[in-house]
């Protein structure tokens, strides 16, 4: 390879760092949405690189459904402590208690959709004008149409048919009062790129991503962690399984995969061989063909 040529990971990194700096330059009060999942961990890693030796100039915002894995929350708190960043938690439980949202009922109840209200309330409360997130275009077909700088109106809504064209590396973050932006620095990364980059940079992850024994049960072909949040149906029997998680979200909508991968190298190999997308185990996307688009229009991340 030519001396003046970047590898694909370095070129993606350069692009993402450019986007993160553009956010810091164009907005007054940005924040990084942090779920404790690998994509938001990579975003934070890139942010540290973008502003070194200064601190990351924006807080992390976690929308906590109250149904998170303990491992995720411990990892989050540890990361915040180590890096001396500011963490803001938006609580879905509080939104429920204050009557702003109503909890779903039944066996497949999930707080996934309720997050949107809490997120928009948090944005309004802290007056964030740009919220960055680790969404990628390869994840889901509605996200394939997403911009780096995604404009949201005063109700937090996404209008996919009327998006601003994005050319070269010129990002238009202009807005009226009350409107805000969602920004996706790793838009062009694939799941494989993320794992290769985590391996290359030796980025720390929650233990959930690596193989472990866990009490699980199977419903509609999906392996669920047996925690008290999801009520079991009479025929469902939890048993010990050797699993890991490909994505980490709220317990009620994250499926596990059977896996023995205990190192990053083994995970990269596993991802290369797999024939199902990572969102194949996300129950939140399976509700309808346009589930993601509909949630995004309402202000979902």
């Amino acid at each position: 390879m030519n001396k003046y040529h970047l590898t694909h990971l370095k070129e993606l990194e350069a692009e993402s760092i450019y986007v993160l700096r553009e956010v810091a330059a164009q907005f007054e009060n940005p924040a990084l949405l942090f779920s404790g999942g690998k994509d938001s961990i990579v975003c934070f890693h890139l942010a540290k690189k973008a502003f070194w030796p200064a601190k990351v100039p924006f807080p992390l915002v976690h929308v906590d459904t109250g149904h998170n894995f303990k491992e995720t929350l411990d990892f989050r708190d540890d990361l915040v402590k180590k890096n001396g960043v500011n963490l803001i938690v938006g609580s879905v439980q509080e939104s429920i208690d204050s009557g702003k949202v109503t909890e779903e009922k039944g066996f497949n109840a999930s707080r996934n959709a309720l997050q949107t209200v809490t997120l928009l309330d948090t944005i309004e409360k802290y007056k964030f004008d740009a919220c960055m997130g680790g969404a990628r275009r390869d994840e889901e077909k509605a996200r394939a149409k997403e911009r780096f700088f995604s404009h949201r109106d005063e109700f937090g809504q996404w209008d996919p048919k009327n998006q601003r064209p994005e050319l070269w590396n010129l990002f238009n973050g202009k807005k009226n009062i009350g409107e805000h932006f969602r920004v996706f620095p790793i838009s062009n990364w694939t799941e494989m790129d993320v794992w290769q980059y985590i391996l290359l940079e030796q980025i720390e992850l929650p233990s959930l991503y690596f193989t472990h024994q866990r009490e699980c049960f199977i419903r509609d072909g999906v392996i669920y962690a047996h925690e008290n949040i999801i009520p079991l149906k009479p025929n469902e029997k939890p048993e010990k399984m050797q699993v890991r998680f490909r994505t980490i979200g709220d317990i009620s909508c994250t499926g596990a995969v059977l896996s023995n991968a205990s190192t990053l190298e083994e995970i990269v190999e596993e991802v290369a061989a797999t024939r199902v997308t990572e969102r194949g185990s996300r129950i939140d996307d399976k509700r309808s063909e346009a589930a993601m688009e509909d949630r995004k229009k309402q202000g979902y991340f």
Binding site: M1, H5, T7, L9, L199, E265, V268
Partner: peptide, 12 residues
């Protein structure tokens, strides 16, 4: 895919 492989990939 070997590690050496993807560390030498470029982007088109």
């Amino acid at each position: 895919m070997s590690k050496e492989g993807y560390l030498n990939m470029d982007l088109l």
